[in-house]
Computed example of a mutant assay.
Amino acid sequence: MADFVLVAGAWLGSWAWDEVVPPLRAAGHGTHPLTLSGLAERREVPAGQQTHVRDVVDEIERRDLRDVVLVGHSYSGIPVGQAAERIGDRLTRVVFVDSEVPVDGGSFASGWWQGQAAFEAQLADNGGHWAPLGAADLDGQGLADGQIARLVEGSTPHPGGTLTEPAVLSRPLGELPATYVKCLLDGPEPNDTVASLLTSDHWRLVTMDTGHWPMFSQPAELARVLLAEVA
């Protein structure tokens, strides 16, 4: 049986996986949804990018988890990708759910579509945090009204240091056993960095016909996707 370590993206905590966890557990697997420092119930804990990497590694080592399927959604693909290479033979596979991926020396901010300076200005205008999305920002993502309300109401400001501190990789990310889950309502193709990684024999692509938050819009289908990784 595998141990799934589930890490949600910006603004979210372990609660985001509440509807994904039951089918994984029903199939006999360990499930460990994780709240990163500075978010949700841990929002008062200071955090930078490497804090989040340590959060993931420490959870796995503290619980002495083996056969780990490490799942990173959205922003959290960046710390999860770094943690995956640091847990050695504990890792079975890393699954990136419509996520960013770490680039050595790069950060979330450095890949921002409007440029790093524009993104850092957003953080400065919000006291050093990335402000959560509002309901209108979630249109077209396959979410029902109740799902939008739950996502918005549960979100907390995201600590800016985690978004501007650079990633640190010791070997090419393409060497990791990985699956990339592309959510098609958020764009039909992976970004160029992911597309390059998908040329590796160690990586494979799975698509879902939903938006960027499948743990809310299609939790049962996302659970089936994850279970297929250990079938």
Rank of each mutant, 00 (worst) to 15 (best):
P79L: 11
T51S: 15
G38C: 02
G28C: 02
Q82E: 14
R93H: 12
R66L: 02
I87V: 15
P46R: 07
R42Y: 01
S37K: 12
Q50E: 14
L65E: 02
R43G: 00
R66M: 07
L36Q: 12
R43Y: 01
R86S: 10
H73V: 01
H29Q: 11
R86I: 05
A40R: 03
L65A: 08
A47Q: 05
D58W: 08
Q50G: 04
L39N: 13
V57S: 06
R86C: 03
L65F: 11
R43D: 04
T92G: 01
P46E: 09
G48E: 12
D104F: 11
I60N: 07
R63C: 10
V56E: 06
R93S: 06
T31D: 00
E41C: 00
E61S: 14
L34G: 01
G28L: 07
L36N: 02
Q50P: 00
I78E: 03
P33E: 07
S99K: 10
F96K: 13
L65R: 03
Y75I: 02
S74V: 08
G77M: 11
A47E: 08
R54F: 05
G77N: 09
L70N: 00
E41I: 02
E100T: 12
V103S: 09
V56N: 02
V53K: 01
F96G: 11
V45N: 02
G48A: 15
I87H: 03
R42E: 05
V68I: 07
H52V: 01
H29V: 09
A83S: 08
V80L: 01
V45Q: 13
G81E: 10
T92C: 12
V103L: 13
E41A: 04
E100G: 11
Q50I: 10
R43A: 10
G77A: 12
P102Q: 13
V56H: 01
Q49H: 15
E61A: 14
S74K: 08
V57I: 11
T35Y: 06
R62M: 10
P79W: 08
V56P: 03
R93T: 10
D55F: 11
G81V: 02
V53A: 05
V80A: 06
R93E: 11
T92P: 00
L70A: 05
Y75F: 14
G81N: 08
D98T: 11
D55S: 08
D67R: 15
H32L: 13
F96A: 15
G48T: 14
P46N: 10
V53Q: 01
Q82G: 09
A83Y: 10
G48W: 07
D104R: 12
D67T: 05
S76C: 07
V97H: 08
D67H: 15
P102I: 14
L70T: 06
Q49C: 13
V103I: 15
R90T: 00
I87T: 04
R93Y: 12
L34V: 12
L65S: 09
V45I: 15
T31W: 00
V103F: 06
R62D: 14
S37L: 04
Q82M: 15
V57H: 06
V101R: 09
H29C: 08
V56D: 03
R86H: 10
E100D: 14
S76D: 08
V45D: 09
I60S: 03
L91F: 00
D104W: 07
V53M: 06
A27V: 04
V45T: 13
G81C: 09
A83E: 04
G88R: 03
G88W: 06
L36C: 08
V80E: 00
R93M: 07
L91T: 01
